[in-house]
C-alpha cells in the first residue's frame, strides 16, 4: 500500500480563511457570539482555536458536556485546550438526563439500548445543550465534523452533525491535525487516539477498522481527484477497503442533505424555491 496520508494543507491560508469565515458568517446574522462543545478531542480544539481568533474569548462560549461514560482525561484535556486558547469553559453534565431517558428507550421487556443507540442519544443530548446555550447567549453553534467523518457518515444526524457554521467540513482528519499544530493545540490532544468517548478504551479507528490516514488517502483520491475505485486499488490500496469506503460515502449521502420534501406545487422548497442561506445579509 502506498504511504497513506491526507493531502497537503496550506495551514496559514486555512487559518486566515476559516477565521474570516466564522467572523463574516456570524456577523452577517447580526449575532456576536459563538457556541461550541469542547470534548477534549482534536476537532473541537481546532474549532475552538479558530473561534477564539474570530470573535475573541469574551464572545466564545465553550461548553464541556460530559456524560457518565466520559473519561476524566477528556474533561482535563478540554480544560487544557481552553487554557491554551485563553478562553473559559463552562461544564454542563448530561449524565442525569441520560439516566432519566435511557430506561424509557429500551424496548418493553426487551434488550438494553445498544452502545450505538446510546452514543447517538448522548450526541443528541449534547446538541440540546448547545442549542440552548446558543439561545441563552444569542449565538451560533459551531460544528466540527471534518471531511473524513462527513464522507464516511461517522457522526450522529441532529447530534454532533448539528450546527450553524462548520469550519472543518472541508478538511480531512490529517489536515485537521496539521492545522492543530499551527494553532497551538496542546500536544497530548493532538497525539491521543481519536475517540467518541462512549465507553472506556473506545477509539474511532478501532471501531471503523481502518486508520484515518488510510481513509484520508483513499477519500482524497476518490473525491478530490475523482479517481475511479479500480484506479485507487491499482495505486496499491486494498480492494476491500476501497470498496467499503466507497460504499460508506454513498450510503451516508442522506446525512449530508436536508430531508426530502414531497413535491406537489409548482414552486417547492429545494426545487424551485432556492435562495442562499445568507439571503439579504
Amino acid at each position: 500500500m502506498p504511504s497513506p496520508s491526507a493531502p497537503n494543507l496550506d495551514t496559514e491560508l486555512a487559518e486566515a480563511v476559516l477565521v474570516r469565515f466564522l467572523r463574516d458568517e456570524l456577523h452577517r446574522t447580526g449575532l456576536r457570539h459563538l457556541v461550541l462543545g469542547l470534548s477534549g478531542g482534536i476537532d473541537s480544539a481546532v474549532a475552538a482555536m479558530l473561534a477564539v481568533r474570530a470573535v475573541g474569548a469574551e464572545h466564545l462560549h465553550a461548553v464541556a458536556i460530559p456524560s457518565a461514560q466520559s473519561s476524566p482525561e477528556s474533561l482535563a484535556d478540554a480544560r487544557a485546550v481552553a487554557d491554551a486558547g485563553g478562553f473559559a469553559v463552562e461544564t454542563i453534565a448530561i449524565g442525569d438526563a441520560a439516566a432519566g431517558l435511557l430506561p424509557h428507550l429500551a424496548a418493553p421487556g426487551g434488550a438494553d439500548v445498544t452502545p450505538l443507540r446510546r452514543g447517538n442519544v448522548m450526541a443528541r443530548l449534547r446538541m440540546i445543550v448547545l442549542y440552548d446555550v446558543s439561545a441563552r447567549v444569542a449565538g451560533l453553534v459551531v460544528g466540527m465534523s471534518n471531511k473524513t467523518e462527513l464522507l464516511l457518515g461517522y457522526g450522529t444526524l441532529h447530534g454532533d452533525m448539528a450546527s450553524a457554521l462548520n469550519p472543518l467540513g472541508d478538511l480531512y482528519k490529517g489536515q485537521v491535525r496539521a492545522l492543530a499544530r499551527r494553532l497551538g493545540v496542546p500536544q497530548q490532544v493532538i497525539e491521543k487516539p481519536p475517540t467518541a468517548d462512549l465507553w472506556a478504551g473506545q477509539t474511532d479507528e478501532g471501531e471503523m477498522g481502518f486508520t484515518y490516514d488510510e481513509a484520508d488517502a483513499i477519500l482524497h483520491r476518490l473525491v478530490d481527484l475523482r479517481r475511479a475505485p479500480a484506479d485507487v486499488v491499482a495505486d496499491g490500496f486494498p480492494e476491500p477497503l476501497v470498496r467499503r469506503i466507497e460504499t460508506m460515502i454513498v450510503r451516508n449521502q442522506f446525512k449530508r442533505r436536508l430531508p426530502l420534501i414531497a413535491k406537489l406545487s409548482t414552486r417547492t422548497i429545494g426545487h424551485e424555491f432556492r435562495y442562499p442561506r445568507d439571503w439579504r445579509t
Binding site: D10, L13, A14
Partner: peptide, 12 residues
C-alpha cells in the same frame, strides 16, 4: 471564489 488550499504560499 477561493479554490484549492494545498499550495503552501498562503494563497488559494
Amino acid at each position: 471564489p477561493g479554490r484549492g488550499a494545498t499550495g503552501g504560499d498562503g494563497r488559494f
